[in-house]
Computed example of a mutant assay.
Amino acid sequence: MAIYRFSVKIIRRGAGELSAIGAAAYRAGEKLMDMSTGIAADYSRRVGVLHREIIAPDIAPNWALNREELWNMVESFERRSDARLAREVTLSLPAELPASEYVELVNGFVREQFVSRGMIADISIHAPKAEGDKRNFFAQILLTTRPIGPATFAHKKNPAWDKVQLLKTWRRRWAEHINQALEKNGIDQRVDHRAKSAQNSSFSLEIARLFSQMRDVVEKDDYLDVQDKIDILEQIKILTKFSANAEDESIKREARLAIKVLKGTMMDVPRTQQLRTSLMDSILKVNRLLNI
């Protein structure tokens, strides 16, 4: 299964974090001037920023597309000492996809879920760190916390943006965007946005269904003698046992061996093409679910 990450945090003034200007400069790898202090936040030496872009609603003024002007406007508009300056979304990008697909993938999701609601999105896409996991491509998105109008920000924030249900929608839709991109590229990997417990429950039900299907095919086949059926059913039983703890690598190895033996057993005994096709289809699905 491809890696999935979707995290959200709020950037506040006076919370021991960078200002909105500093946060934007760091994520984009740029030098931005804080107009209120005359001090520049300079991260122009940061490496690994593959793409940077601002996407705003069509009604937004021109300054909304200028990173320095945008975040200076945010800082001046928010007066409270503990003001919420931005919402940051961090997304893992599937290493299975070519990097050339990342901009289209991220931008499509951002336009659909953020910009369409009136937010301005400051996007940066990053390569893995030299000393880290080479698959760790990711995107950071800074979002304005107020809807933008033709001239400036709205005086009232939209309370719907803080609802848990909307966060759940974002998580689900990001997974769907990734899976659509994987499918379009002919990649047989998928992500799941659900909590691990929910994934395990769904996984167990699907595995159980496939093993039941395999047993039914074998038991109902009239061309197999009793010993053939016993041999194949024993392999299915072993697979069922091993798949119960599929996260364990040693269990996966044993399951891989059991699948190999089951395939060999199928080839050794005479049977109809329909039986072989049905069993092989189930075995391939088990392989994918066990990720082996």
Rank of each mutant, 00 (worst) to 15 (best):
A175W: 13
D162L: 13
T169W: 02
K163F: 07
F138M: 05
F153H: 01
W161M: 06
Q189C: 09
Q140W: 03
A127M: 12
L210Q: 12
I236W: 05
I123W: 02
T240M: 03
A181H: 08
S204T: 14
A181S: 14
S202M: 09
K229P: 01
D192F: 04
A198T: 04
R190Q: 04
D188C: 09
A151H: 03
T144F: 06
D133V: 10
A139L: 03
G108H: 09
R194N: 04
L239C: 06
I141H: 09
K168L: 15
N200I: 14
L233R: 02
N200L: 13
Q180W: 03
Q213V: 13
V115K: 08
K184Q: 13
Q235T: 00
T240H: 11
I178C: 05
K184T: 10
N136E: 07
K237A: 04
T240F: 03
H193E: 14
R172E: 15
A151L: 13
K241A: 02
S197K: 11
K129H: 15
I148V: 14
D228V: 04
Q113S: 07
K241G: 00
F137M: 05
V164Y: 11
K157G: 10
E131R: 13
K237T: 08
L166R: 06
L233Q: 10
P128A: 08
T152M: 12
M214A: 15
K134I: 12
F203P: 00
D222Y: 05
R171M: 10
Q227V: 10
F203V: 06
G149F: 00
K163Q: 11
L167G: 00
F203K: 08
K196S: 04
P147E: 11
